[in-house]
Amino acid sequence: MTVTEPGAPTTGVPSSAPLLKARGASVEFTVRGRRGKTVVPAVQDIDLDIAPGETLGLVGESGCGKSTLGRALVRLADLTRGTLEFQGTQIGELKGKPLRDLRRDLQLVFQDPMSSLNPRMKVRELIGEAPLVHGLATKDSLDDLVATALERVGMPRSAADRYPHQFSGGQRQRIGIARALALEPKFIVADEPVSALDVSVQSQVVNLLVELQRDLGLTYLFVAHDLAVVDYVSDRVAVMYLGRIVEIGTDEDIRERPRHPYTKALLAAAPEIGRTEAAAPLAGDVPSVVNPPSGCPFRTRCPIAEPQCAESRPELRVVDGHQVACHLV
């Protein structure tokens, strides 16, 4: 493994130029409260390369910044620091019309398929509005475009004349996917796309996403808290904790050779059918991002933490063929 550039991820990245490249990407929110302004560092110093055609899985618990990172990569959250490159072009600073044009290439599939569809629009308009605005269709060709988009996600043409509330959760998520696909994007962030769905419907939607990627050559960032789903869809998996990536490697690396204690805990905690005894649960709560622990952010819950962990924050380094941010491995 050769390091081509300082800070570049070194594992599992195919040799072709990355489709999307983030360096030092950070997102901070300013919250005005009773005690004045509080800066919430949701995402910190992320270096990430995503190769064309790959699926990068992003796992972590609520509040770890995984959704914010996903939104930052498609320019729905602004970077406070760092750079973002798409197909070799800097996109971190784009505004106005150039940014709106760029959005064709970068799409998002939302978690809640109900609240992400405008309740007053029929499916035809939900799917067809943006292609019309971007000039991908004319008023005459719109029906065909919508029908194609619907059929691609396994919905009948007749769905175009209905409103979102007339569909089940799984069908709504299909409509959301059809809407994203209608712009012929290159990169899709799927933000917990199945966690609001029933178990039996989840697998339908996961299968659809995998199939679409194969047929259309899409690149995904798949954000989820369910490690098993992420493991299934992803080529590589990144584990986030308190706004930072703590381990990143191929799906097999993460599944078979996890090195970070947090990754191990996540793997052990995932409820597994047929197991009668719960794994020894991780102690304590996730600390606040506003007031992270000194040194390693995970040390307060880490079963193997040592004094040195409180002193300095471990950087990602290559261990066992993939990257881990831990002093003790």
Binding site: S200, Q202, V206, V210, L227, A228
Partner: peptide
Amino acid sequence: SVPRLGMDRNVPLPSIPGS
């Protein structure tokens, strides 16, 4: 339909059709 670790992506997840 409950996904398990280590499943092969080339094999579709078992699912129940419809809702």
